[in-house]
């Protein structure tokens, strides 16, 4: 394909060819497959009007489901932040036998289908499961409680923090740490005031990614959640329930809210990444 004639360029983006083709195809594909269908979602609730929309969202059951989905995702993201930092540190800074296998397995939640994860987790944490049995002897029930939802969402978000931190940890030179040590800081002080702040942007990015991923999760949660309205019913399930009641507008309303919050999260994420890039 010859370089595009300048006829339709409103400015010269670059000396390279293919701008029109690549951007055109990108926009077309994006619009047809993502934007137009999402528009259908956004438009649908309006058939019940703004007041109807507000009513759906004010309903206690909907509020609970959203709180559960977002709340459990937040807790799961927090767990993944703490342990993800630990795992990333261990994988980058230490050597131990089998490290490569461990490193590879971190990506399992990316590769394993959600339904498979769902039935595996619900089998594992059921009252007669390998983990569920000893836990229930101590009075802790995981399956069919919000705790089960948190466990499933922790699984789902696990790789995000680790994979976001690893390249940063690898890159991070030890000079700053060594300088701090020479200046008399203890190891702990060094970690707290030199290493941790340097990792913070990536840590937050990873946590935000894990959170965004967890909020809408369905397949792995649905087998282990209790689905009790107001207690252990996740928002995506509520969408399905409303759909099956023929309340398409209501289902779409919840979908729009989740979409809006996800969009805001994404924007924040991208801003975070821009900030951390600027800090380098």
């Amino acid at each position: 394909m010859a370089a595009l004639a300048p006829a339709r360029r409103w400015r010269n983006p670059s000396a390279l060819p293919g701008f029109g083709l690549s951007l055109g195809f990108t926009l077309f594909y994006l619009s047809a497959l993502v934007l137009v269908p999402l528009a259908a979602l956004v438009i649908r609730p309006w058939e019940i009007g703004w007041s109807g929309f507000r009513e759906v969202l004010a309903d206690a059951r909907v509020v609970h489901a959203l709180l559960l989905s977002f709340g459990a995702s937040f807790i799961a993201a927090a767990i993944n932040t703490a342990f993800g930092l630990l795992v990333a540190w261990v994988l980058v800074r230490y050597r131990f036998p089998g490290k490569n296998v461990v490193d590879a397995i971190v990506d399992l939640p990316f590769a394993l289908p959600t339904a498979v994860a769902g039935i595996a987790l619900s089998t594992l944490y059921a009252r007669n499961g390998w983990i569920g049995a000893p836990l229930s002897e101590h009075g802790i029930t995981v399956a069919y409680t919000p705790l089960g939802v948190v466990v499933a969402l922790t699984f789902i978000g696990l790789p995000f923090v680790v994979r976001t931190l690893q390249p940063v940890l690898v890159e991070m030179s030890r000079e700053a740490e060594e300088a701090a040590a020479t200046l008399g800081a203890t190891r702990f002080q060094t970690l707290r005031r030199v290493v941790f702040p340097a990792l913070l942007p990536s840590l937050l990015t990873g946590a935000a990614l894990a959170f965004a991923r967890a909020v809408g999760e369905y397949g792995s949660v649905i087998f282990i959640a209790g689905n009790l309205p107001g207690i252990s019913e996740i928002a995506p399930l509520l969408i399905i329930i409303k759909l099956n009641e023929n309340d398409v507008a209501g289902a779409s309303a919840i979908g729009v809210v989740m979409l809006a919050i996800s969009f805001v999260m994404l924007l924040t994420l991208n801003l975070l990444q821009a900030w951390s890039a600027a800090r380098k």
Binding site: Y144, E233, I240
Partner: peptide, 16 residues
């Protein structure tokens, strides 16, 4: 626990 279908409930009761 409220399963979404009859079969789900039977599984919960009998299997779980």
């Amino acid at each position: 626990v409220l399963d979404t279908g009859a079969r789900g409930s039977t599984t919960t009761f009998a299997q779980r």
